[in-house]
Simulated assay, not measured.
Amino acid sequence: MSRRPEPPRSATRLWRFSAAERWAHRTTAVLMGVCVLTAAFLYLPAFAELVGRRALMVTVHQWSGVALPVPVLAALGSRALRADLGLLNRFGPHDRRWLRAVLRRDKRPASRPAHKFNAGQKLYAAWAAGATLVMLGTGLMMWFTHLTPPAWRTSATFVHDWLALTLGVVLAGHIGMAMGDPEARRGMRTGSVAREWAEREHPLWRP
């Protein structure tokens, strides 16, 4: 994957993410990482042999999964987070243009107009939120087996396992995209981004 040019450090900085948003992102990332890691220990024999304590892995996996929505819910008191959630939930003509450019492999900045979040980020956020809720619901049915009929638990296990695999692939893509954009990572780490980067990657954004 080609890395995008890193803007000069002397460029004027623009505020992009609040402390609450960065905290919610980091905490969610840690919990998701724990879920993925413990799932690997539970389902892959080679990893399971390294730990051996399956009961512990199950407990850690269950509680990290239940806690997954908590950081975002706790951060809803932040006006900045609520505003960004509103932006993520809006899909406009410029987003459709961005997607068409991606499908045509058109990498010209002018052909990919974006507001604070581009269309790819909006689709990822919506998919991740929906997948997390489905994983939580199916996981609870697998955990509290006495609350649902056997047929429901069988279906929940099927959905949970295959959605977990899909989620792992999508997360790998998300991390790969982030690794290719140092300034985007800096924005999530420090809260600010270079004006030059914002004008190039998000020309419709006016902070």
Rank of each mutant, 00 (worst) to 15 (best):
M1A: 12
M1K: 00
R3E: 13
R4N: 15
E6T: 13
P7M: 09
P8N: 06
R9Q: 11
A11Y: 05
T12A: 14
T12E: 14
S18A: 10
A19E: 13
W23R: 09
R26W: 02
T27K: 01
T27S: 12
T28G: 13
V30D: 06
G33P: 08
V34F: 07
L37F: 02
L37S: 12
F41T: 08
L42E: 10
A46E: 08
F47Y: 08
F47M: 11
A48H: 00
E49R: 10
V51W: 10
G52F: 07
R54I: 04
A55V: 07
A55M: 12
A55N: 15
T59M: 14
Q62F: 15
W63P: 10
W63T: 10
S64I: 07
L68Q: 10
P69F: 07
P71Y: 05
V72D: 01
L73F: 12
A74R: 02
A74N: 03
G77F: 13
A80K: 08
A80Q: 10
A80G: 08
L81W: 02
L81H: 03
R82A: 12
R82I: 03
A83F: 04
D84E: 05
D84I: 09
L87S: 04
L88Y: 01
F91C: 03
G92E: 06
H94S: 08
L99S: 02
L99C: 06
R100A: 15
R100Q: 10
A101V: 05
R105E: 08
K107N: 04
P109A: 06
P109Y: 01
A110G: 14
A110M: 02
A110Q: 04
S111H: 05
R112M: 05
R112Q: 13
A114C: 04
A114H: 00
H115G: 15
K116C: 09
F117T: 02
F117N: 02
A119E: 04
Q121K: 01
K122R: 00
L123K: 02
A126L: 08
W127N: 03
A131V: 13
G137W: 07
G137L: 14
G137H: 05
G139Y: 05
L140D: 12
W143H: 09
F144R: 05
L147A: 14
L147M: 11
T148L: 09
A151Y: 09
W152V: 11
R153K: 12
S155I: 04
A156I: 10
F158K: 03
H160W: 07
H160E: 15
W162S: 10
W162Q: 05
L163Q: 01
L165H: 05
L165C: 10
T166W: 11
G168H: 02
L171V: 15
A172W: 01
G173F: 03
G173W: 01
H174N: 07
I175N: 08
I175P: 04
G176D: 09
M177F: 07
M179I: 14
G180A: 13
G180Y: 04
P182A: 08
G187H: 00
M188P: 09
M188I: 01
R189H: 06
T190W: 01
V193S: 07
E196P: 03
A198H: 03
A198I: 06
E201S: 10
E201Q: 06
E201C: 13
H202F: 02
H202A: 03
L204S: 06
W205C: 09
R206D: 08
